[in-house]
């Protein structure tokens, strides 16, 4: 009995560390999902660039890219929605959604391109914790829908 339990613990430990080593991101940490994608859509995650498609999860620190002509739309777990047009780059800098512990924040960075921002529950519960950073100005968001274009 004890041997079996020890083996089970060891196996779990190995699985967990294997996950850490290979940089596997568990779907539980997903902060949103891609809902629309056209053209070449990429994600830069842990310094590696990969295609991202409809149905795929997104995570904190992801850099989302619409390369050339195209678009991409994401719905987040707080009901926020962000969508981008051609030649856009958006970083998901921080996302905390634990209302019980009052951990609430949503910061994104629009490096270039066009963005439609539809705010969700985080902006409703904690307006001061929501912002969009761009190379030319920072936007504070109070429960709303807006557009931003950043030209390089």
């Amino acid at each position: 009995m004890r041997l079996v339990r020890n083996l089970a613990v060891l196996l779990l430990f190995l699985l967990a560390t294997a996950g850490l080593r290979t940089g596997v991101v568990w779907a539980d940490d997903a902060i949103g999902y891609v809902k629309s994608a056209e053209g070449t859509t990429l994600v830069v995650r842990e310094e590696e660039s990969a295609p991202i498609a409809v149905g795929d999860p997104v995570f904190v620190a992801d850099l989302l890219i619409v390369k050339g002509n195209g678009s991409m739309g994401i719905t987040f777990i707080d009901n926020s929605q962000l969508s981008m047009g051609s030649g856009s780059q958006l970083r998901l800098t921080s996302f905390e959604f634990v209302p019980k512990e009052e951990k609430l924040s949503f910061v994104t960075e629009l490096l270039k391109g066009t963005l439609l921002y539809v705010s969700g529950v985080i902006a409703k519960l904690s307006p001061d914790s929501v912002s969009v950073v761009t190379p030319v100005a920072t936007l504070s968001v109070r429960g709303t829908k807006f557009l931003a274009r950043v030209d390089d």
Binding site: V118, A137, T138, S140, V141, G143, T144, F146, R149
Partner: peptide, 22 residues
Amino acid sequence: PTNLFVLLEDDDGKVGTIQVKN
């Protein structure tokens, strides 16, 4: 302006606020 920020009406008809600051 080339860098442009536009406020829209929310999907539920309300209008919020954004502050653009540098």
